[in-house]
Simulated assay, not measured.
Amino acid sequence: MAGQSKFKKIRRTLLTVVMAAACFVLGGVIIHRFLPPAATFLMISRAVAGDGMNYKWRSIDDISPRLVEAAIAAEDSTFCAHRGFDMKAIEQALKANAKAEKRKSGRIRGGSTISQQTAKNVFLWPGRDWVRKGLEAGYTVLIETVWGKRRIMEMYLNVAEMGPGVFGAQAASRHWFGKDADELSPREAARLAAILPSPRRYNAGSPGPYVRRRAARIQAAMGTVRNDGLAACVLR
């Protein structure tokens, strides 16, 4: 009897912990459906490292539509069509990374969608460990369900790092081009999207050859995004 009582007590404790964790996670997602985050793990880590934290929230209505098109063109062309995960992109990334590992060369390629990147950026810490990837998948499902595409894009364009300690479209527009986010030209939007994979390495204001080439490709793809309605779930 004593053993059964102890087992029941442990089970109740575990159930309470699981329910509390679920409420914490779901509560955070619901709150950020309406309120911007005060800061993220990455923002705090950059500030602690001495880069500062240049972060200014802007509504999606106050961000140039060209930047929405550039982000979709550069990072996730099926953003409006998928439910958080692009299985084809994940499969391609796994194959490319397996080949790079065999050659013991080449950079690791990611297959994350904008939804996955947003879940990571807002709620989780940087890194590639499996615990974080599992949590990222769970948060991705939740934000796709609770937030919807327009809010996901709004959050993404506000918390993504776009320079050393520079977060979001407004801060990046002021930092690199001396203008507000709603004034970005197609070329400037393409340059910001071009540095997203390595914002601490590349310069959007005075880009080198690689960023110029990548930005040119992104700007050309932005026409396809616009003409084919690939940003219709965000732009009204």
Rank of each mutant, 00 (worst) to 15 (best):
E161Q: 14
M162Q: 09
M162F: 08
G163M: 03
G163K: 00
G163E: 03
P164E: 13
P164C: 09
P164N: 08
P164L: 11
P164I: 10
G165M: 10
G165S: 12
V166D: 05
V166L: 07
F167I: 14
F167K: 02
F167H: 06
F167Y: 14
G168Y: 03
G168C: 12
G168P: 13
A169P: 02
Q170E: 15
Q170R: 12
Q170S: 11
A171T: 04
A172R: 00
R174K: 12
R174P: 02
R174V: 12
H175D: 01
H175M: 04
D180K: 06
A181L: 13
A181F: 08
A181T: 08
A181G: 13
D182Q: 12
D182T: 07
L184V: 05
L184I: 07
L184K: 04
S185Y: 12
S185G: 11
P186K: 07
P186H: 07
R187L: 14
E188H: 04
E188D: 11
A189C: 12
A189W: 09
A190H: 03
A190S: 12
R191D: 07
L192S: 04
A193E: 08
A193V: 11
A194T: 12
I195A: 02
I195K: 01
L196Y: 10
L196W: 04
P197D: 15
S198A: 15
P199E: 04
P199S: 05
R200T: 15
R200E: 15
R201Y: 08
Y202F: 14
N203L: 06
N203V: 11
A204M: 11
G205T: 05
G205E: 03
S206C: 02
